[in-house]
């Protein structure tokens, strides 16, 4: 049991991190912490992905000494995927931050529950 956990330590750590991020994004009331949770969640996936490209004893996939034999290098594909993923997460984070800023300017709080209450009161005033 412990042995197999040790052998799968990277996926296990990734799942743990993912769970931390996921619950923070889902359950935390503070919008900024939700965004942090989002980033932890995505980073967990990227860490796992990056670890998949590592092959013990091989060099990073950058040709420096003229050796073009693919067997000498680690798998470059996951790194490419991680880069793409990072770009995606940066844009999503920026968008969430912009939305948070807009909400903060209007309601002067980052607590999502309080914002809901205020929005409901506003609506009742209108009707």
């Amino acid at each position: 049991m412990l042995d197999s956990l040790w052998n799968n330590r990277i996926p296990a750590a990734a799942v743990l991190l993912f769970a931390v991020g996921f619950t923070t994004l889902l359950l935390h009331r503070n919008l900024l912490k939700k965004i942090i949770g989002l980033n932890i969640m995505d980073t967990a996936a990227y860490l796992f992905l990056a670890s998949l490209g590592y092959i013990a004893g091989r060099k990073p996939p950058i040709i420096t000494d003229g050796n073009t034999d693919p067997a000498a290098y680690a798998n470059p594909l996951p790194a490419g995927l991680v880069l793409t993923g990072i770009v995606v997460s940066v844009s999503v984070t920026a968008l969430m931050l912009a939305l948070t800023l807009r909400l903060y300017r209007r309601y002067h709080t980052l607590d999502l529950d309080k914002i809901y209450m205020m929005a409901r009161d506003e609506q009742e005033d209108e009707t």
């Binding site: 994004l25 995505d42 993923g85 209007r106």
Partner: peptide
């Protein structure tokens, strides 16, 4: 005001969904 709030809610659900999809893809890979 309400559209921003609706957008935040929509984003949170969407991001949870795409996060799960991403980790699923990574597991499959």
């Amino acid at each position: 005001g309400r559209t921003t709030l609706a957008a935040v809610r929509y984003m949170i659900f969407s991001l949870i969904g795409s996060g799960l999809f991403l980790i699923g893809v990574v597991f499959l890979y």
